[in-house]
Amino acid sequence: MAGMWTIAKKEIIDHLTSVRFIIIFAVLVILILCSAYEGVQQYFKEGSRMLIPGQSAFLAVFTWGITEKIAVVGSLLGIAIGFAAISQERDSGSLITLLTHPVFRDSVINGKLMAGACALIFASFTAIALALTTVITLTGVAPTGDETARLLTFMGISGLYMIMWLGVSMFFSVVMRDTTSSLLASIITWLISTNLIYSIASLIASIVAPLGGGIITPHRIGWKRHFEVFRAITRFSPTCCYRDVAQSVLGSSFRGGLIIVEPGKPMPAPPSLLECLSQSWPEITVIVVVLVVSFAASYLLFMRQEIR
């Protein structure tokens, strides 16, 4: 792996000192802190009423906006790090200079992925840790062991989700002719994942399985079917998958997003963290597959590419 560490080291320093990274990271932190504050206000105002039965009030604060901010802005941070990774060096000519030195080509792309991943893990952990500190300070409540485990898992999933965007945008930076096209391709993919698929899923779900105007009761078959159709389509969106996993890990959603309480039976017990994770397996798989496929594709293409 000649040169990989050298390249990774240089890239990490580049990222952490780049204006692009610092600005988006700052925006992410500010948004998350605002969400944490709002969540705490909600926690004080509504107490346990905002909760889904069985969910921890402490964790509910985190689902209040923070997840959404990472889903949207965190992904942008991943793109910001990745979209220029190869294409900018190719545009400027520094890629050829780099390759005239005795490095393996894999070291170049591996080093860049590794550096980007480190920067993103740093970003997601720092942002969430800051939010956690804020929540603990404002509420004066410390998380229990289970809550801590869930928060750590949430951090991991968030990091993974952001790294997935790094992979996707790096793929475009390898494939596209120049940096502008690469950024455009990443942004379009991002729009599709964060907005388009969600909208289409809602639309199709309400055509295929209309909810009707009546009072929604959990018994209604249409409601369940509506949800199934919606979920099946949103699986194509890593952002929706991330939302699902994050909410499930934070304990704010039962499978299918609704609790079916059979009349006369007691409330089902809330699932444990492991149960949550195994329920969310398809969604986690989607994120991992997108990451692995996009990275493998960029890797193979880059190894073969003519450098001029």
Binding site: D14, S18, G93, S94, I96, T97, P102, V103
Partner: peptide, 20 residues
């Protein structure tokens, strides 16, 4: 090629390195 690169130097016609 790596051994060749280790004992040669190359100045590209659009030479560029890292501006930052």
């Amino acid at each position: 090629p790596r051994k060749v690169k280790a004992v040669t130097g190359y100045l590209h016609d659009r030479f560029a390195c890292y501006d930052n």
